[in-house]
């Protein structure tokens, strides 16, 4: 560990679940929000005292790296398939397990759309976290179904136009399914949004614990290298361009979920 790492830890603390890796404490790019989102999930698990019962199901994307950083039981699935794997884990273990996926936007709603939609159709009692950085980060920033209009990617060098369709709003989409109990969208760009998002995450886990149905939280994340911006400019861009096209908030919270959620949160 470098001095800097230690200092950061002293100032902000960090969840026990982050493993210390010898060479590479955080394998993501500088300014990446995916570790921030992962951290919010880990804090929520710790606060809910759900660490020992948690199983994390990882997809393929930059969040793939978290398998070596997080001290939880985990399973890595093929690209787009975490909802399939998580459904089976939840049904086979039969206990009070908290089973969640961590997926990128491409993993979740491009290649994995079929798996996601059908997990929702089956009302699986699992939680899906979609880290939306508006592109395929790992492979160099190509167009994803969630790329905002006008955004330049390596496969839409002139910016996304309606000829490539419109950005998909996944929590809004999933809210139409009867078997979905909770959906929300948060962001990692400010301490206030971080705290709100953590609240969504806790509610999503709580909905799972009381077997209400599928729960889903999207988290908007900056991806500075592929956006060709500095980390700071990425924050501004998130605020000015991404959030207006992807409104933050809760889109579904089934009747009684909040009440029950509160009980379960304790």
């Amino acid at each position: 560990m470098t001095d800097i790492g230690v200092k950061k830890e002293l100032v902000a603390g960090r969840p026990d679940l982050w493993l210390r890796m010898e060479n590479n404490p955080i394998p993501s790019c500088p300014g990446c929000h995916e570790p921030t989102a992962m951290r919010a999930i880990l804090e929520a698990l710790e606060e809910l005292d759900a660490v020992g019962d948690a199983v994390m199901v990882v997809g393929v994307g930059c969040s793939f790296a978290f398998q070596s950083m997080v001290d939880l039981d985990y399973l890595v699935c093929a690209h787009g398939r975490p909802p399939d794997g998580a459904s089976a884990v939840k049904r086979v273990l039969k206990g009070d397990h908290v089973v969640f996926t961590i997926q990128g936007d491409g993993d979740c709603i491009a290649i994995g759309a079929g798996a996601l939609i059908n997990a929702a159709a089956r009302a699986e009692k699992i939680t899906i976290f979609m880290l939306n950085n508006a592109n395929y980060g790992t492979t160099g920033g190509q167009l994803a179904p969630t790329t905002p209009l006008g955004h330049v990617t390596s496969t839409t060098p002139g910016g996304r136009t309606p000829a490539h369709g419109y950005p998909v709003r996944v929590p809004e989409l999933l809210a139409t399914f009867q078997g979905v109990a909770y959906t929300a969208r948060g962001a990692m760009n400010s301490p206030a949004n971080y705290q709100k998002t953590k609240g969504y995450i806790k509610k999503a886990f709580a909905a799972q614990r009381v077997s209400l149905g599928l729960s889903f939280v999207e988290m908007l994340c900056a991806c500075p290298p592929n956006w060709h911006m500095t980390p700071l400019d990425s924050l501004k861009w998130l605020e000015q361009t991404v959030i207006p096209q992807f409104p933050l908030g809760e889109f579904k919270d089934v009747q009684g979920a909040s009440g029950k959620t509160q009980e379960a949160t304790r």
Binding site: A113, P145, G165
Partner: peptide, 15 residues
């Protein structure tokens, strides 16, 4: 909407 859900949803996303 079962085996083809991914194709359908993404055709809709691409408009």
């Amino acid at each position: 909407i079962a085996i083809g859900a991914g194709s359908l949803v993404n055709a809709a996303a691409r408009s």
